[in-house]
Simulated scan of single mutants.
Amino acid sequence: MRKLQVQGVHHITIVGSTRQSAIDFWEGLLGMPFIFEQPNLGKPDENHLYFDPGDGRLLTVFTNESRTDAARPAPREVGCVEHLAFAVSRATFTQIPARLQERGIEFLERDRGFMNSVYLQDPNGMKVELACYKFQTPEGYRDADVLMRAHQLRMERGDHHIDDIHLADAIEDLLAQRARLAH
Results as ranks from 00 to 15, higher is better:
2 R>T: 06
2 R>Y: 03
2 R>N: 04
2 R>L: 09
5 Q>S: 00
5 Q>Y: 04
5 Q>P: 00
6 V>A: 00
9 V>Y: 06
9 V>L: 15
9 V>D: 02
10 H>D: 13
12 I>M: 08
15 V>S: 00
22 A>C: 13
23 I>M: 01
26 W>Q: 07
29 L>S: 10
30 L>M: 11
31 G>Y: 05
31 G>T: 06
32 M>K: 09
32 M>L: 12
33 P>C: 04
33 P>L: 05
34 F>R: 09
34 F>C: 01
36 F>W: 07
38 Q>E: 02
38 Q>A: 10
38 Q>C: 04
38 Q>V: 02
39 P>A: 14
42 G>D: 09
42 G>F: 01
44 P>K: 11
46 E>K: 03
46 E>T: 01
49 L>M: 11
51 F>I: 06
52 D>V: 02
53 P>Y: 05
54 G>A: 00
57 R>Y: 05
58 L>I: 06
59 L>C: 07
61 V>T: 01
61 V>L: 08
65 E>C: 10
68 T>A: 14
69 D>F: 05
72 R>I: 01
74 A>F: 08
76 R>I: 03
76 R>Q: 14
77 E>A: 11
77 E>Y: 00
79 G>P: 09
82 E>W: 13
87 A>L: 13
88 V>T: 00
88 V>I: 12
88 V>E: 06
90 R>Q: 10
90 R>Y: 01
91 A>K: 15
91 A>D: 15
91 A>R: 15
95 Q>A: 12
95 Q>F: 06
97 P>T: 03
97 P>N: 11
99 R>E: 13
99 R>Q: 14
102 E>P: 02
103 R>V: 00
103 R>F: 01
104 G>W: 13
106 E>D: 14
108 L>C: 11
109 E>D: 05
109 E>C: 13
109 E>N: 08
112 R>L: 15
113 G>L: 10
114 F>H: 11
114 F>S: 03
115 M>F: 15
116 N>F: 04
117 S>G: 06
119 Y>P: 07
123 P>Y: 06
123 P>C: 09
126 M>A: 08
128 V>C: 07
129 E>F: 09
133 Y>K: 14
133 Y>G: 12
138 P>E: 00
139 E>A: 13
140 G>A: 07
144 A>I: 08
145 D>N: 14
145 D>A: 03
146 V>T: 04
148 M>W: 03
148 M>R: 15
148 M>F: 02
150 A>M: 10
150 A>G: 02
151 H>S: 10
153 L>Y: 11
153 L>D: 03
154 R>G: 05
155 M>H: 05
156 E>G: 06
157 R>Y: 03
157 R>S: 05
161 H>Y: 14
163 D>H: 11
164 D>P: 04
165 I>K: 13
167 L>I: 14
170 A>E: 05
170 A>T: 04
175 L>E: 14
176 A>W: 10
177 Q>P: 03
179 A>G: 01
179 A>D: 10
181 L>F: 12
181 L>K: 15
